[in-house]
Amino acid sequence: MPNATTTRTGAATSLEALPGGHVSTNCAFAVEFVGVGRAFASEKKRGARGVMYPVLRDVSLTVRPGEVLAILGTSGCGKSTLLRIAGGLDSPSVGSVRIDGSPVAGIDARCAVGFQEPRLLPWRTVAANVTLGLPAGTSRAVGRNRVAELLELVGLSGFAEHRPREISGGMAQRASLARALARNPGVLLLDEPFGALDALTKLKMQDLLLDVHVAAPTTILLVTHDVDEALQLADRIILLGYEDGTDKEEGTDVADRTAVADRTAVADRVYGATVLQELTVPGARPRDRGSAELAELRGRLLAGLGIAAKSTIPAFPY
């Protein structure tokens, strides 16, 4: 597991690809999670001493500048929570997050978030919504050009003056991606950005994200529940889930608890999810979606997701 004490990693990465690129504004940052844990207060039992439900525990991870990291995990295991912590929208109960060596405290201007939902302001046009993503201090003319470029990129040029309610959900999600890109972020946090898209648009948008990354290699943390998406886009994949056998390590009486409820369910609630697997995806992008090497990894990841849910390795009908 990468350790927390990684030295300050340089900001100006790989813009060599763009001669004369604005290194000062266009950079990728390292993101370090140091023993991050997050527990939420339970809503039911408000009395006594306020029961806390751990969602994440002991997440330690270093994302290199310009790296694309996919975060896989079953629904509700804390993927969004981890992403929100990285962006400063939520703060960890224990541990800390550092971006480019400096700790994240509150909403971080170096990050841009593509939320799981489009979250467009309904009273603004698509273009005006994307404008909201521009970094503070962008001049009007520059901003207008940039927004036009981004809308073109996500294929919404013709819908710039439409209201969010006048476009489809998939288009709204793309507008939301454009808004995050407008920020010119050092770290791009994407929470299931393509989940709502139809299969073909999804493939197209995945390729588009790769193009964006080639043009300006920012650090990308991509939450997804789609194993194939992770394999296609990421340099590295982490699998979040609940560790087996944490019960025994803690020395508690497993038999008693399994009598009451499903064993993993108890473990989930008591201990929270952490990084179960971490694997580097071989091969340069764009990758052949049908390659045998990826198929092997896919099997492993799916099994990992399966264990998290059922404690056995199911056969996946893929």
């Binding site: 813009l15 763009l18 690129g21 604005h22 504004t25 266009n26 050009n145 940039r146 470029e149 981004l150 073109e152 990129l153 890109l181 010119n184 972020p185 193009d211 964006v212 043009a215 300006a216 920012t218």
Partner: peptide, 10 residues
């Protein structure tokens, strides 16, 4: 057409 993204100027 895609260059100039993320702040790189056209």
């Amino acid at each position: 057409e895609r260059r100039g993204l993320l702040g790189a100027s056209p």
